[in-house]
């Protein structure tokens, strides 16, 4: 059933959860490109199954179930060495994801303030890496630095921001 009203309704729902699905899939399959492919496959599957969706229920949990099965399908299609995590861990990550939803949402808001506190050099590195999508190897070459040194810098930035976000959440009463 692919009438225009359904398509518009699906598009509106999907546009709202697209990033959440990517976050979820990336947790289970931590490779950006593979995760994006799985999310695309999930979107197609969701559209095919949209007639079964109960509009009285929230869309995201419904969509996540299909995303999970798409991740499993993807893992089955790959050699064992390409599986990032064990099946046991994958199940735990999938199970626990929804429980962290609210905290992760608050964390994203807290990240704004933490990014503002970041020094200019670190901020510029994030901007080059994520805004202009320049690989760290290329950035290292331009800056005349060793790439391993940049990996360490990236790790420190991520860790600093993570701790800043957690301090903010703690101050707001999250445990």
């Amino acid at each position: 059933m692919r009438d225009g009203a359904n398509q518009a309704e699906f598009a509106a729902l999907y546009a709202r959860v697209h990033l959440d699905l990517l976050r979820y899939v990336l947790t289970l399959l931590p490779d950006r490109h593979q995760a994006e492919d799985v999310v695309q496959d999930t979107a197609r599957l969701l559209w095919r199954k949209f007639a079964d969706y109960d509009p009285a229920q929230p869309f995201l949990p419904w969509a996540r179930k299909f995303a999970y099965f798409e991740v499993l399908k993807f893992r089955r299609s790959r050699a064992l060495r390409e599986k990032y995590f064990s099946d046991e861990l994958l199940d735990l990550l999938a199970e626990e994801h929804a429980a962290d939803d609210n905290q992760l949402t608050q964390g994203r808001e807290a990240l704004d303030g933490c990014l503002q506190k970041l020094d200019e050099v670190s901020r510029q590195l994030l901007k080059d890496r994520y805004g202009d999508e320049i690989p760290l190897e290329e950035l290292a070459r331009r800056q005349g630095r060793k790439v391993n040194a940049l990996y360490v810098v990236m790790h420190r930035i991520r860790q600093r921001l993570l701790e800043c976000v957690n301090r903010t959440l703690k101050a707001e009463g999250w445990t």
Binding site: E96, L104, R108, R158
Partner: peptide, 9 residues
């Protein structure tokens, strides 16, 4: 781990 992945996105 989930926080760090979320932060990356």
């Amino acid at each position: 781990y989930r926080q760090m992945v979320d932060q990356e996105v």
